[in-house]
Design a binder for these strands. Sequence first.
DNA 1: TCAGTATAACTAGTATGGTAATTATACTAA
DNA 2: TTAGTATAATTACCATACTAGTTATACTGA
Lengths: 222, 222
Amino acid sequence: MKNIEINGSTREFVYQRIKSQIINCELTPGTKMSEKETSDKLEVSRTPVREAFLTLAQEELLRIIPQSGTIVTKIDLQLVEEGRFVREHIEKAIVREACSKINTDQLFQLESNIKMQEFSYEKGNFQQLFELDGQFHTILFEICKKNRTNNIIKQMNSHFDRLRVLSLATVSNWEKVIHQHKDIVQYVSENKPDLAEKTMEQHLKLVIIEKDELRERYPEYF
Amino acid sequence: MKNIEINGSTREFVYQRIKSQIINCELTPGTKMSEKETSDKLEVSRTPVREAFLTLAQEELLRIIPQSGTIVTKIDLQLVEEGRFVREHIEKAIVREACSKINTDQLFQLESNIKMQEFSYEKGNFQQLFELDGQFHTILFEICKKNRTNNIIKQMNSHFDRLRVLSLATVSNWEKVIHQHKDIVQYVSENKPDLAEKTMEQHLKLVIIEKDELRERYPEYF
DNA sequence: TCAGTATAACTAGTATGGTAATTATACTAA
DNA sequence: TTAGTATAATTACCATACTAGTTATACTGA
């Protein structure tokens, strides 16, 4: 029990809330913030708010200008590209490594995940499908015992997440996505690293977003 | 105390100092810390110390146990492996990309860096040689406009840095290292990505450290 | 009307006091 | 002596006061 609520601190609460609002663009890029305003709104003191701000600044979701103010960072397309770059090369290496490291229990996890993906797809529950997609990739990292790497990649892609929200990008072809997941699992379980890597590479190309259009529609966000 | 230089803030001063002490193992893995003790020692208040601690905890150099205490993290060989893994795959991709992106000014920077490496080697200034080695790789990341990625990789390798300090690992064969640097620059400038990547891969294998011996010598650090 | 300036309001940075949880210590009783 | 318990000391967490730097505002004078 204690282990679960180990981070029930006010600081963590504020951090999660603000982070969520930024990524969902409820706090739009460029929005002015202040420790006092936020602490009043959330009815906590400045200290945990300030500490949450500092963390978010390190993740480049906030920019703190000393003695002046704090703003929600604008979407940095260079950072988006770095996130994409790292994800591509690391995920390709991960599926290769997974081929030789996977055990039966982990294979079962992947297969179960895909079954649930199919179920969610049939039911039209795309929100859950999106989460299962994330979990699928997380399982691959866990197989390789590289959980931190996954977290860092997720952090590097927070600006991309905002792009996705802005574009209202619902995946257009979930069928293809799920099929690729199936292929990846098959190749990993059959220890075929080249095919697994190739499939992952194509899989990652599905999530490319049309940036120019968004930059025209929301110039003040970039 | 207003003895500050880099970002100016007390927080940054404390952060840099503690981080440096941890990486150089002046604060050994497992050492007990406390906000108050550190603030007294550095003659600052608890606030900037606390904020520096939080940052260092996110970088897994400190572990904060709520209401209990703070300790210098032990060396996590799994994290070391993750850092190595990410560095290997990203640096290989970086040299490939550098082949098509490098311009004459950047080529000059790389060549100058190598000249200075040779000079430092002749003079026996291995400390400077070590720093030039780091700068060499940094230039490659800059060519690809992926500075953040470089910083994140450096952060992921802080536990490895401690291993290196403990092992007193002075590079045994700088000549080979410098020669590989030369080869990489040549292949990048001649737009030969396969050879550049291959050389980088071998280059990174030179810095592998004998972990088992260290774990025997300093069991309390792991 | 407008430029320049003094001033007020606001910001993040720092210092410090109090709180609750944990841990070490001293004491009591068998 | 030892196990159990009450107590003291220590810790990180949170709230708040104060400082110094920045920015907006009102005022002054031409």
